[in-house]
Design a protein around this nucleic acid. Structure first.
Ligand SMILES: [Mn+2]
Ligand SMILES: [Mn+2]
Ligand SMILES: [Mn+2]
Ligand SMILES: [Mn+2]
Lengths: 250, 250
DNA sequence: TTATATTTTTAGTCATACCTAACATTTGGG
DNA sequence: CCCAAATGTTAGGTATGACTAAAAATATAA
């Protein structure tokens, strides 16, 4: 049975993955400290993971993730991040509490529901009835329970915005941009992906497809690569690729 | 350490609680069948729970929950239901998948986040920017990702409603009712709780306090008791109590 | 290079949570 | 009332995942 990792082993994988990202080498000691377990526990876990061919490991040898192990680790990290982001951005939970909860719940959330969390957060952002202000409104009053008057007051402003945008759009078709023209922190919705003749990676398959919400995380000084987040995944695109993605800014 | 039940023991408590609700007697066999474990596993779990004074149990004796055990079980059930309802009502997840996921995640969700799930679902219902139609809109398109046009089309209808309601309210102060006047299925927001002189239970302490969203679940043929759901808890009120709760219908 | 310090592994325990097979008790039919 | 069927418990085993103490390997400093 290659599948069905235990919560414990998933946490070891996650820790190894993150330590690799931070430093070059992974030492059993680091894993132990990060997870708050003893050194012998780490040895035991490494043996389990090696047996499942998720880490390359032999006694006293260096520790590294196999391709399959890396994929599994990335999956854990994604579940962790999706949950944490939902708790922080939608439910207005305090960061550290959200992170802790995410790391416990990441092991029991099924795929269907994880994807719904992502879609819901996107829906809130995209829909003019929801949007950032609405969420902030929830965050601000989640201690008391919002009154209807509070909510009705702000809905008028949303209507104003929608009317403004409609007027603007009737003049100037669409507030369109290429993905490479956005700045870090900006979000947008994918309108179209032009397939380049020079056979690049199929970025559509990685989640950058019409309707998806993308967020620019980092743009390297040279303008390339462009780190983005889409559907809970972190991706790194070449400029050539980003140029082929048409975006409606949010 | 009386605290910190394992996921497994929580599931046993939950099962015992539910079997008690369904039938009179609890038999080890029923627990085993419901949880899909062998009979000896049930015996072992019962011993653990008896040691923790959560079930009253001796070999070959009848099984029952102690007051503390009942409270713990109810807490598990509540976590289960809050999660399931959020998945179904907000994230538009298919019922059985939602239920299964809820029963796995119920063991790792912290209190803060559970309460936020409840508050958020209430916020969506109460806020005219959100509301049932909005959620249904998400449910309908969560397969594809909503387009902005879709969303803008429906926001106009919400505005209409808000304007209508405002006009109505300017004439007739508030669409107020007493809790006991609502029908099963109806939801409302608590405006005020009049404390009765005849020292009844403090229903405010059980969650029926201003700002809370209540849903009528069942009204007995005699008009009493009235089963309601509030903040994820199920409560049963006497008519006398319900009469003291002023409601704004939703 | 040798001695010491650090890191890692092994060995042995413990607790949880399952299982099967065998034994014990309770219950209901004749 | 007695005996079989149903139900429940004990005994004994496996697997996971943690721990401490002690040994082994590796790294560092003199
Ligand atoms: Mn995690
Ligand atoms: Mn974790
Ligand atoms: Mn459960
Ligand atoms: Mn459950």
């Amino acid at each position: 049975m290659r599948n069905a990792l235990t919560a414990s082993l998933e946490d070891y994988l996650e820790a190894i993955f993150q330590i690799i990202e931070e430093k070059q080498a992974v030492r059993a000691k680091d894993i132990a400290r990060r997870l708050g377990v003893s050194n012998p526990s780490v040895t035991g876990a490494l043996r389990s993971l090696a047996e499942k061919e998720l880490v390359a490991y032999a006694p006293y040898d260096v520790i590294s993730l196999t391709p399959r192990g890396k994929a599994a680790a990335r999956d854990v990290v994604r579940r962790h991040e999706v949950l944490r982001d939902f708790f922080v951005n939608v439910l207005a939970v305090e960061e550290s509490a959200a992170d802790e909860a995410a790391c416990r719940m990441e092991h029991s959330i099924p795929k269907v529901i994880l994807e719904r969390f992502i879609r819901f957060a996107e829906f809130v952002e995209v829909c003019p009835r929801g949007g950032e202000k609405w969420i902030r409104d929830f965050g601000a009053r989640c201690g008391q329970g919002a009154t209807r008057e509070d909510c009705e007051r702000c809905i008028e402003s949303v209507l104003e915005e929608v009317r403004h945008r409609k007027r603007r759009e009737s003049r100037k078709a669409f507030p369109t941009a290429k993905l490479n023209e956005l700045k870090p922190g900006q979000k947008g919705k994918v309108l179209k992906v032009n397939f380049h003749e020079g056979g690049g990676r199929k970025i559509s398959e990685m989640g950058v497809s019409p309707g998806a919400v993308v967020e620019i995380e980092r743009v390297s000084p040279m303008g390339e690569p462009i780190d983005i987040k889409v559907k809970g995944y972190h991706l790194s695109l070449r400029r050539e690729e980003a140029e082929e993605v048409e975006i409606e800014t949010l």
